[in-house]
Design a protein around this nucleic acid. Structure first.
Length: 154
DNA sequence: GCCAACGTTGGC
DNA sequence: GCCAACGTTGGC
């Protein structure tokens, strides 16, 4: 089983939105970066662990644990002219963008970005790399374990 | 609002 | 295929 960190702006989809979603599952629509898409399309498997991360907000950090709940399938918003994620170059015959569904495991305490940065065990995390903008990044088993340890703390 | 970092676009 | 210009991300 692989592990991932997935960023979401809470104004778009917060952890509480996932808690309230039908089946506590959300379609991860709107990814418009090829590297992030490829992670979902080529590498994610149902059951993979996901750290749910709030970005572009007053308190960025990890706020929940989820898992991958589907294989990748075409992102409907790419065809929707009224959507901010509309992509004029995408066609139904040749969709460009795909995504997986993500299901809640549990909402956690907030692990703020500053706490993550302060923890040597997390120093290798891709999301902490200077200049990182990728919305989906792989998490190593060691990093995952370290985050699970952090989550046991109050 | 600033700005570093980096992906994408498009002219050549 | 190069690369400058431009746009976006996202923390601060």
């Amino acid at each position: 089983m692989a592990h991932w960190l997935m960023k979401s702006e809470p104004g778009e989809c917060s952890i509480d939105d996932v808690v309230r979603a039908p089946g506590q599952t959300v379609p991860w629509v709107g990814v418009r970066n090829y590297q992030a898409r490829n992670f979902m399309r080529d590498q994610m498997r149902v059951g993979d662990g996901v750290l749910f991360y709030h970005s572009s907000c007053p308190e960025p950090g990890i706020v929940g644990v989820c898992d991958v709940a589907s294989a990748a399938y075409p992102d409907a918003t790419q065809f929707d002219r009224t959507s901010p994620y509309f992509d004029p170059k995408a066609t139904r015959e040749a969709p460009r963008w795909q995504h997986v569904d993500v299901k809640l495991v549990r909402k956690t305490r907030l692990v703020p970005l500053v706490e993550m940065r302060a923890n040597p065990a997390l120093a290798t995390m891709q999301v902490l790399r200077r200049g990182n903008r990728l919305s989906i990044t792989p998490v190593t088993p060691e990093e995952w374990r370290a985050v699970m340890q952090l989550l046991k703390r109050e």
